[in-house]
């Protein structure tokens, strides 16, 4: 009886450790298969013929199709520039020059699902509908409440992350995605 309990507990611990560690590494933990630049992460082999199993797991286990690197370079952010997780009670500015691809888009995602999907257009913004500063900088406001200027709607609760995609990127960015200029994510105010 005591041996069976030990076996059950051992199996539970083994399965939990195996699952959590696999999901952690595939999700970008330890930066084993990702490159980080500030809060932004990119999966280094995503969209290449040499895509590693962890990167495949990150995308395909969530039912996400991976775009060819020649077509799309993609980054994800779960925190602001100070390293704090994105909080739906706060508002953020996302600022930078993003003109190194034919066009770009940024969307808010919740657990692999584009947020506010009944109003999907509110949960994303692309380069063609963005207002730019005189020097070409884009300043995007991420908040759950409407904001003047380039507003990216955030849900009112839950964990969120940002997905930034560059379409038809320049060859240098495809080869060295961690060297490209990415926008700063700055926390502005919190409720």
């Amino acid at each position: 009886m005591f041996g069976r309990v030990k076996l059950a507990i051992t199996c539970l611990i083994g399965i939990a450790v195996g699952l959590i560690s696999a999901r952690y590494v595939a999700g970008g933990g330890f930066d084993l298969v990702t490159l980080s630049q500030g809060p932004w992460k990119t999966w280094t082999s995503a969209g290449l013929n040499t895509m590693d199993p962890y990167t495949k797991a990150h995308f395909l286990a969530a039912g996400r199709l991976v775009d060819n690197r020649r077509e799309v370079v993609e980054y994800e952010a779960r925190s602001d520039g100070a390293g704090s997780p994105l909080d739906t009670a706060c508002s953020y500015s996302i600022a930078g020059r993003l003109d190194w691809a034919r066009w770009w888009s940024i969307s808010v995602s919740q657990n692999g699902v584009i947020a506010a999907n009944t109003k999907a257009r509110l949960a994303s913004l692309h380069s063609g509908e963005t207002i730019y500063e005189a020097d070409g900088t884009a300043i995007i406001y991420l908040s759950s409440q409407p904001h003047t200027g380039n507003w990216l709607a955030m849900p009112s609760s839950g964990d969120v992350n940002l997905v930034l995609r560059f379409y038809d990127p320049a060859p240098v960015s495809r080869a060295h995605p961690n060297t490209m200029t990415l926008p700063q994510i700055t926390r502005e105010t919190c409720q």
């Binding site: 030990k6 199996c11 083994g14 399965i15 797991a57 395909l60 969530a62 039912g63």
Partner: peptide
């Protein structure tokens, strides 16, 4: 002994998740 069993099972689950879950998910998709 029990620690070794847990570690080996963890490694097996880890590898299985990485190799098989994407394929199973894509089959379902």
């Amino acid at each position: 002994f029990w620690f070794s069993v847990a570690v080996l099972l963890g490694i097996a689950v880890h590898i299985s998740y990485v190799l098989f879950v994407p394929r199973i998910q894509m089959d379902a998709k």
